[in-house]
Design a protein around this nucleic acid. Sequence first.
DNA 1: AGGTAAGCGAGACGGTACGTCCTGTCTTTTT
DNA 2: AAAAAGACAGGACGTACCGTCTCGCTTACCT
Lengths: 196, 196, 196, 196
Amino acid sequence: MTHNRRGRPREQGIDAAVRAAVNELLEEVGYQRCTVDAIAARAGVGKAALYRRWKSKAELVFAAVVHDDTLAAPPDTGTLRGDVTGVLADIQSALDGPQVRNALPGLLADLRTEDAPATRLGELFLVRERAYLVEVLDRALARGELARRPEVPVVHAMLLGSVFAWLHLLRETVPPGGLADALAPGLYGAIIVLGR
Amino acid sequence: MTHNRRGRPREQGIDAAVRAAVNELLEEVGYQRCTVDAIAARAGVGKAALYRRWKSKAELVFAAVVHDDTLAAPPDTGTLRGDVTGVLADIQSALDGPQVRNALPGLLADLRTEDAPATRLGELFLVRERAYLVEVLDRALARGELARRPEVPVVHAMLLGSVFAWLHLLRETVPPGGLADALAPGLYGAIIVLGR
Amino acid sequence: MTHNRRGRPREQGIDAAVRAAVNELLEEVGYQRCTVDAIAARAGVGKAALYRRWKSKAELVFAAVVHDDTLAAPPDTGTLRGDVTGVLADIQSALDGPQVRNALPGLLADLRTEDAPATRLGELFLVRERAYLVEVLDRALARGELARRPEVPVVHAMLLGSVFAWLHLLRETVPPGGLADALAPGLYGAIIVLGR
Amino acid sequence: MTHNRRGRPREQGIDAAVRAAVNELLEEVGYQRCTVDAIAARAGVGKAALYRRWKSKAELVFAAVVHDDTLAAPPDTGTLRGDVTGVLADIQSALDGPQVRNALPGLLADLRTEDAPATRLGELFLVRERAYLVEVLDRALARGELARRPEVPVVHAMLLGSVFAWLHLLRETVPPGGLADALAPGLYGAIIVLGR
DNA sequence: AGGTAAGCGAGACGGTACGTCCTGTCTTTTT
DNA sequence: AAAAAGACAGGACGTACCGTCTCGCTTACCT
């Protein structure tokens, strides 16, 4: 359960208002100039309410940027090829979008600084992503598309990394057919080779 | 030529002292707490001397962290498989190491903020990397290992992204056989499929 | 009567518990760090209960620090000289003591800020003090020790101010014979001169 | 000497600009709402420049409010009676005035909180005041107006305290003839009695 | 040989953000 | 309706860092 039964309960609307404020500010001014004071002001909220919920700006922004429905459902398209495309599209939808695109580099930098719980939040996201991946691979095994399951971290790194590199390292424009379609052939091939 | 002929010439030892100071500090305290003041103090140098050479902390750290011999020689091992492993090893050697590992996320965040010349430095690195990649692919074409040259940005994203994700997103430990060897099979397969 | 008959009656012990908590905290940490939250916590009381009784921290602390028996009885020693010593002792007992000594400066600062009713509390205290003073002077007139009654505010300022300055401005240690005895001769002389 | 010979020297105008800003703000909004940020903004100065010179808001305001010429010259009027009036006028001029009047209570409260150096600043002022007092008393001894020198702290408390109480405790309006003239007769009488 | 332009270490400067703290109010549930 | 608990808005404080500027000094080039 989330908090004690005694005392005034946390106000419901605040989380939503903050999430909205953060996303607006990220889009308008980017991560660095998305100030905690500005967030509080735009959300009509005191800074104390923010720090009562999140322990730093980084965690706050992370929580605002990662929606619950991100990576909501593992796709099942009937073929490994289709599933890989689906996973890539999910990853892209999580890493793309004006807000995340602005936030991610700063977030990576700030979360790394924080003692341990950098893990807490990031892992939460990655763990779910990896679970989807395992499911996709297991389905392919069941279908006979793979003879054995490749190392999951390797596949994870290739899929997640390819999307991330495209968006944040190479800073290429997203190709007309969609990023997932551009990356899927090669990464599908990689998985097939690893699972032979 | 780098500057006017008049006046006192720039002192020679400073670049080396600064590079050393930055690398020590990155390893000891990470990027965020690797302060410009701390760098200057440790290098026994005034801040003005730093800003005379580099236009921001990010460029300074970037310059200190990227050695000239990074990606020095394009590997030629006789096979695409071997060349891919070589490129991956080069990428790893550029992204790994205690300093870069600490610096990279912060660097990505700060360079993104800076107006245009974020490009200047980052691109310089990426452009060379991409040239090596083109050479590797062309060699494979010449050998008949590939029928056509895959989209270079796609290959680039897969290779660079896989290493980056392993080190900075998934934060996995480097496997005993080496990261390049772990990633090479799948990525080699991907290139083969794309070049068919 | 002070409040409606309906609903739960105000709990009796609260005033005493708060007074005790305030005095403990004043002694332990001083006025500024004697937080309203700390008072409530130590008294085992909600903050609302405090603000239902007093309209600000300053009034709360003031009420806790001024005992009812402060300046309880106007001394009558038979001589002006003795009466002055008595008044001084009363003033000292009101301004001295570990709690008041810690509280007074902060109290003065905060009460001054508050709109009008700063007066309400402070005056209450000063008015009673002044009444005692008038009585003392009138007795001296009746005895023939004074020919005319000196300006009361002047006398009041001299008596109260001397004690306050000793304790809070000069921060001298209280002399062995007692502060009242140290100050009485001079101030008695002053009154005599003024009443000649 | 005021600072090291190396490095950029402290800018001269800042102290004056800050002093002016503080005095304006004290008069306009009082001590509590005379914010450090507001001071910095009005003085056109960064907060760092303030905290480089003074270690807290209280010390900053104190320094701005106590001019060097406060209590500049010990008066010599030829008679103790005149000298006492002069000292009282000096004290009043130090404690009165729109700024000091607004600042003093808050200052007393905040300086008391700070560890030791509350002393540093306050004492500086009191020590000079006491020195003047000693000189006045010694002159009176030399003239034969006093047979022996009264306890200085007692006299100090009476003079300083009377003015302070008038202005900050009783909050009486300053009488038409001037506060010094109203208080001088009684306090002169007190000193005479003590010095008999 | 001396002037001068640019370099140098040191450190102060304006600006900006962070995270903490505290006050006075409000909102729960319980009594 | 009052109680304890504790969340809320607002706002100040003091710290930290960045990139710039200003000292007094030093070093090489160019007259």
